[in-house]
């Protein structure tokens, strides 16, 4: 039993160390951003995804996530630009394509009511 606890403890320490070592990586920022996003902390999530883009400007996943975070925060014009960038970088990704299609449908009706593109830019 003690042995098992020791092994488990060591594994947790190892996992913690490995994630600490990768805090500078875009992937870590995306991962953390997605955790806070799912808790509704969209500003923090957007900050994390922006950091990921700083590290890897051509990361389509980071652009997609940033677009979702911006959309959640009501910054629709910026979200549109990020969705477009994500799709440009990875045009075959099903999830990015679906997100963009759903957003486009919403954004069209949203701008139709105001007659102009609004929201955040």
């Amino acid at each position: 039993m003690k042995k098992a606890a020791l092994v488990l403890g060591a594994a947790l320490v190892a996992a913690g160390c490995s994630s600490y070592a990768r805090t500078e990586k875009a992937q870590t920022q995306i991962s953390f951003g997605s955790v806070v996003a799912r808790r509704g902390l969209w500003r923090e999530a957007a900050f994390r995804f922006e950091k990921a883009i700083e590290k890897e400007p051509n990361n389509a996943r980071a652009h997609n996530n940033l677009a979702v975070a911006l959309e959640a925060g009501g910054e629709f014009a910026k979200a549109l630009a990020e969705y477009k960038r994500a799709l440009e970088l990875d045009p075959n990704d099903t999830y990015i394509r679906r997100n963009y299609a759903r957003f486009a449908e919403f954004y069209t009706s949203y701008t139709r009511t105001t007659g102009k593109a609004t929201g955040g830019s």
Partner: peptide, 28 residues
């Protein structure tokens, strides 16, 4: 069980994950 947990922990970062999130969008 401990070994299985270790394996699961080690595998965590490599899960190619996509999560579905719900947003509340305003309609003007």
């Amino acid at each position: 069980i401990a070994l299985a947990l270790v394996c699961a922990l080690a595998a965590l970062p490599s899960f190619a994950g996509v999560a579905q999130v719900k947003l509340k969008l305003p309609l003007k």
